[in-house]
Nucleic acid binder design. Structure first.
Lengths: 263, 263
DNA sequence: CCATCTTTGTGCACGCGTTCACAAAGGCAT
DNA sequence: ATGCCTTTGTGAACGCGTGCACAAAGATGG
């Protein structure tokens, strides 16, 4: 999923490759866990395993940030945590607004991973007047009318859209007009935004459909497209392809195309 | 490529690139919308715009499925809907289980995009005995003890994990042992699975961090290096609040409301 | 039946991302 | 110091995905 869009070739002169940026949070999480266990240093091999990636890839990723490792020893956990946090911009506080407080919006509002990672829910916004004032996750829901003032008053630059598909573009337009320049879209719609605004999209339906594709392939390799619900417990994966040396007989997810993408 | 081990360059005539597979649901959605408006045919240019991609890319994607278009005219909407649905395996019914009925799990259970796209929630499972029997989205929550029997009885091959990070691997192991071969993971953890099991992961925290990275770069392009203090280890707030999403806020007709978020 | 116009299908080139493999660098024991 | 061992950092090769540009295919009108 390259930046294949109305955007610059993503080759920012000072730029870290998009693929690397997408993995930094993964490393950060693994490092944070090590930090809490007071582990002083970690090798690329260990950290790579913890993050579920290849060690060579990890080293190359870190090489874009600078030379923070010590040969023969590994990486200093605390130092690396700081460097990555700084690189991702997590050393500052990012106020975000969540628009659309339905089941999903409420779930997002209750998500604990916000505060611990530099994000703060500035406000919850919903179009339903009946929701106004109602407390969700400790915050009173504000009505859509206040959207613009909330954005400007709090200096919000990141917005999360969790509305039905039909309302997404309209909400998006208002967010952008009010000054938001980064949007995380949960609505199953293609959003149009002006130049300079980043959009990432998360779509459950698409994820499931991709899984279904692979599942179908696994389940019925020779079977006709008839209905088949019974799943053999011992699915025999075709052995045609060369077997990759899997550590411990298990494989961590070594690659993945997120359902999110720049727009 | 949530499918790590699927290295099979161009062996099969069935070898559809992962990147293409990931876009098929996008095309399908756009086509479905056209179908509902009774549009008979559509050109690659129009469809590409609707799906938010490049027309050349779209044509190339379709070329992997076969030649379903008519030169000088375009593609037959209905026929293409069927072909893509079949390719994705959506012409059959996929029972799925959702494990971990917290805020997120409940949101997923209420997600309307399931049924309309070939998926059916076979059961909601939670480890909390207090939740057992409680209706969520019209289904009674089942206790974890029943996990194995539910999987086998319903022939479930796709599982959704919406538990806290700490429980994810254990749940994953049990799902796999019971016969599940595709997992959609919302917990912020790297899951280890045996060969042949597909895992896709959705992580809100990571998405936001990626946005923050770009946001920081946009903001700090002309601004002087802002003030910042090194934040050592971040305290991880354990989710304790028992606030749950209002069950009354049911979504409309069949509008999709995607959902996503790590525990 | 032929000319013209539209749109598909794809060969080709380019660039990003991944992986290999190894020299350089640093620690540590002797 | 010196030599050995470990691990980083990276040059280079390779493969995948993207986008261009155009010839082929089919519709349409005269």
């Amino acid at each position: 999923m390259a930046t294949g869009r109305t955007h610059r070739p993503a080759t920012r002169s000072r730029g870290i490759p998009e693929a690397t940026v997408a993995r930094l949070p993964l490393y950060l999480r693994a490092l944070t866990a090590l930090s809490e266990r007071s582990v002083p240093t970690v090798s690329s091999e260990e950290l790579a395993t913890a993050a579920g990636v290849n060690s060579a890839k990890l080293r190359k990723d870190f090489s874009y940030l600078g030379s923070y490792g010590t040969r023969g020893v590994g990486y200093d956990v605390e130092y690396l945590v700081y460097q990555i946090s700084r690189e991702l911009g997590l050393t500052q506080d990012w106020p975000v607004v969540i628009v659309g407080i339905g089941n999903l919006g409420a779930a997002l509002a209750n998500y604990g991973g916000f505060a611990s990672r530099g994000f703060r829910v500035a406000a919850l916004i919903d179009a339903d007047p009946a929701m106004a004032g109602k407390p969700v996750a400790g915050l009173p829901v504000r009505h859509t009318d206040e959207l613009e003032s909330i954005i400007t008053d709090n200096g919000v630059s990141i917005g999360v859209i969790a509305t039905p598909a039909g309302a997404a573009q309209q909400v998006c337009d208002r967010l952008v007009a009010a000054g938001v320049t980064s949007i995380l879209n949960f609505a199953p719609t293609v959003l149009s935004v002006p130049e300079g605004v980043d959009v990432r999209k998360v779509d459950l339906s698409i994820e499931l459909q991709i899984l279904a594709f692979h599942e179908q392939r696994k389940a019925g390799e020779e079977t006709s497209p008839a209905q088949e619900t019974a799943v053999a417990a011992t699915a025999q994966p075709r052995s045609g392809a060369g077997v990759r040396p899997a550590p411990g007989g298990r494989k961590g997810p070594d690659g993945d195309v997120p359902a999110v993408m720049p727009a």
